[in-house]
């Protein structure tokens, strides 16, 4: 399903963070949301998720309006969220974390095996407290939680932050496979290599607005545009 944002404004306290965000994440594709720190990427994801309330504008998933809905209703409309903080429940075991994310009540064994294929550590530490996992394992769990049941739209906030390169490769494979299975992905990413590899479309934010939208491949080719939009050559901080 297409995700469409139309003139979305968000206020947090007395700060006006999103100042009219317009873009579309087309169905079945991976859209990268790029931009400097503080551009409003995380706020955009949180606003779509219903964790901040849009003060103006419309958010649509397919035909359905998401703006104004509670986060739980957005989730039930088929949106899964992987926050920047991962937000795993550290007092619960790996199994319990995934069990909660499976709203149907039981987990689909085949799907679980598919997830274990990308993130074998989750199988190893199946019964362990999530709080005792390493940072990378926590990130895997957070993503696995979003995948445990099929959802039409995935919102993922900086999944590669602080991860070892080997784990990043697994993650890239996973994201590609999720897309193959038909999900729409909106991905905030600082790592340009990852963005180039998994992104189909791209939207670049600055100061609470979308300043560029187009094909990811085109942006990846155009070093001048990258420098102008993103302020620095992202390849350099790998």
């Amino acid at each position: 399903m297409n995700l469409t944002l139309d003139g979305v404004h968000t206020h947090i306290g007395r700060y006006h963070i999103l100042q009219g965000v317009d873009f579309q994440a087309p169905a079945g594709l991976t859209t990268m949301l790029l931009g400097r720190n503080g551009a409003g990427k995380t706020t955009t994801l949180r606003t779509i998720m219903g964790l901040w309330r849009a003060s103006r504008g419309a958010i649509r998933l397919g035909e359905r309006r998401l703006d104004g809905a509670r986060a739980s209703d957005v989730a039930r409309a088929g949106v899964a969220y992987v926050p920047e903080t991962m937000a795993i429940f550290s007092d619960l075991s790996v199994r319990e974390n995934l069990l909660l994310a499976a709203r149907a009540g039981a987990m689909d064994e085949a799907r679980l095996d598919w997830i274990f294929g990308f993130f074998p550590a989750l199988k190893t530490f199946w019964a362990s407290r999530a709080g005792s996992l390493s940072g990378g394992q926590k990130q895997m769990l957070s993503i696995a939680r979003a995948l445990i049941e099929p959802r039409p739209l995935l919102l993922i906030d900086e999944p590669t932050k602080g991860l070892a390169p080997a784990i990043i490769d697994g993650l890239i494979a996973c994201l590609k496979d999720v897309k193959e299975r038909g999900a729409t992905i909106l991905l905030v990413e600082q790592n340009f290599r990852v963005a180039r590899e998994v992104g189909d479309r791209v939207a670049v934010m600055d100061n609470g607005r979308i300043v560029h939208a187009g094909e990811m491949a085109a942006l990846a080719e155009d070093a001048e545009l990258q420098g102008r939009l993103l302020g620095l050559s992202l390849d350099s901080h790998q």
Binding site: R70, S72, R76, P83, A87, F89, S90, D91, E96, L100
Partner: peptide, 22 residues
Amino acid sequence: RIGLLIRAGVENREMVEALGYR
């Protein structure tokens, strides 16, 4: 499940809501 929700909610109410629970 309600017990899991309580323990999860103690840690992070927002994420419980984002998983689809009221």
